[in-house]
Nucleic acid binder design. Structure first.
Lengths: 342, 342
DNA sequence: TTGTAGGCGTTATCAA
DNA sequence: TTGATAACGCCTACAA
């Protein structure tokens, strides 16, 4: 069978409490005993049972990450690996584990809480803000259970980490303005989406600062996918006075926009500039390459991880929130001034 | 504090062993007691400690998934979410958890084994074959520990699930031949890579079956990334008799190939056909859209999950292995016969 | 510096 | 049908 602390104790001729102290490198144990016991542990290939340790220590040393397989996939998919890696990069060295749990869409949310939190399976929780809901937040806070949201969350006191979407909207729009575009449409996103609101806000502010009239009819709401991008832009280009630039909610929207534009025979970036949120790995590979807003999702994960650990250590501190800065990757699709040069 | 089985027992005026039996729905407990105890559990908001349960049951009810943040990211990135989702879709309903662990590259591999396996943290393991190595396999098998590899593994007895890369090679090459291409180069992949070997084998067989001479100099080895694809194809196109079609190791290679081809002013698919392994989400969005080989990575994950569970239940059965079939998504980049039609 | 005894929250084995 | 009691494998006083 598995070798236990008892076996080691017997083999070393000491009490198991002594072995335990060696395990935890207690200063009360003599150097000699330590080395001797360790030697034996090595010989017998002993690894302490983490489950027993956890039971005794009353801590699972485990962090949970919520995903929604059914719904989030399109949004999370390209970032998931990096986010996970980021989280793992900070909690791994601290000997924490990462447990991934799927949260059913219509399943009463409490289940996750019971399954993960109340059962003591995890000591802390990281979740996408799209999965989180007020009810869950209240339960979690009621339990004084540490958690962090990836993505801004405002309707409740929640610690979160996010990229500065408003600033991102400003950056994209500002860049387009700087290139000389003047009539910029915003494609994709539903009015009530948290993420849309922020991005749109930045867009609007950039216009304001440039002294350009904000036009409600330049905001084309809709699902942020290729099809909507395509349809929306097709429509726009048919109008009498089409915009001369587009800010797209994400790369899929931008694909649709590219397709529609090319189909309509409108030159990019000469006649129209296209910029987009979310720098997917393939943004540089479209035709023309897409100017897009890069967010370091590894860093985002790492930040969320750090915040969570911090929160677990000092639950008394106020809810923190952290805004990371995106980075604009300028590519051909918006280089009006150099159009045709390359 | 947390409410325990003891508290419930007291409140219900029964022994904690009775409560335990209610928890496990033992047939030896009367209906009345069951409902009464359950009522109290609900009232007191009781959730059994999963750690204590596990200690008592000697099972972690937890499955480990190995990742290599440092190295695999490029390969795994686009598939990771789907693979995880697939695994979770089968183990989740069985109340298993999924723990993600990062395996350090140069770290003596044993550490993972100790940390995860010997410590009893997990009951089963799923790993990419690129992370697995013979030493680890031997240790795992020596421990009679159940595990499954995603990706074929042949140098040791290992249960694995994979897509049929040889068949994929045949499909891509066969499709090109069917379109009338005759001189097909294979771009990317190192001779010793397991995955290259298989894909190349299918490529070769397709040529054989079509009665076309296999030419060693049509195999352009190298890292499967954009840069190599670009350089390799640029070189090829400069030669006196360039190939009239390309099979690329992955989408990045294909990007490079596209770029080089366009730069050289060679028409796709009229003058040259380009097809690639791995249907990334952006394959349809290149210019022209890339014919590529789709693999259902959700299904791959699910299959690995099922195999692992099966293996944990009946460790006596011989090592299974499963080959899933890829699907060819034909797009414009290889439609020689319809070139210019669209 | 080491050992003894009890506890962590369940389950499992017997008795009752 | 229920209840004591001893595991499970480790940790933590407290005692020696």
């Amino acid at each position: 069978m598995k070798v236990t602390i008892q076996d080691i104790a017997k083999a070393a001729n000491v009490a198991k409490s002594t072995v335990s102290k060696v395990l935890n490198d207690s200063p009360k144990i003599s150097k000699e005993t330590k080395t001797r016991v360790r030697e034996i542990m090595k010989q017998m290939n002993y690894t302490p049972s983490s489950i027993a340790t956890r039971l005794a220590k009353r801590s699972s040393h485990n962090i949970g990450m919520l995903i929604d397989m059914s719904k989030e996939s399109e949004y999370m998919n390209p970032f998931f690996f990096h986010i996970i890696s980021g989280i793992e990069s900070v909690i791994g060295p601290m000997k924490y584990e990462l447990t991934i749990a799927n949260v059913q869409q219509n399943d009463p949310e409490r289940n996750v809480i019971n399954r993960l939190v109340r059962s003591g399976r995890i000591d802390g929780l990281i979740s996408n803000n799209a999965i989180m809901c007020d009810e869950m937040v209240d339960t979690l806070n009621g339990l004084a259970f540490p958690f962090v949201t990836i993505g801004e969350y405002n309707s409740r006191p929640v610690p979160w980490a996010d990229y500065d979407n408003a600033e991102g909207g400003k950056m994209l729009t500002g860049h387009l303005l700087g290139e000389g575009y003047r009539d910029i449409a915003f494609i994709g996103g539903e009015p009530l989406e948290r993420i849309f609101t922020k991005r749109h806000q930045g867009y609007r502010q950039a216009l304001l600062e440039a002294g350009i009239q904000y036009r409600e009819d330049r905001i084309i709401h809709g699902v942020a996918d290729e099809n909507h991008g395509y349809q929306a832009v097709l429509e726009l280009l048919k109008s009498d006075h089409p915009p001369d630039a587009l800010v797209c909610m994400n790369n899929y929207t931008a694909f649709g926009a590219l397709k529609a534009t090319q189909q309509a025979g409108v030159a990019i970036p000469g006649m129209i500039g296209i910029a987009t949120f979310d720098d997917y790995p393939f943004s540089p590979h479209t035709n023309p390459p897409l100017t897009s807003l890069f967010i370091d999702t590894f860093e985002l994960g790492a930040t969320a991880g750090k915040m969570l650990i911090e929160r677990m250590n000092r639950p008394d501190l106020p809810f923190p929130s952290l805004l990371l800065q995106p980075k604009l990757n300028v590519r051909k699709s918006t280089l009006k001034n150099k159009a045709g040069l390359e």
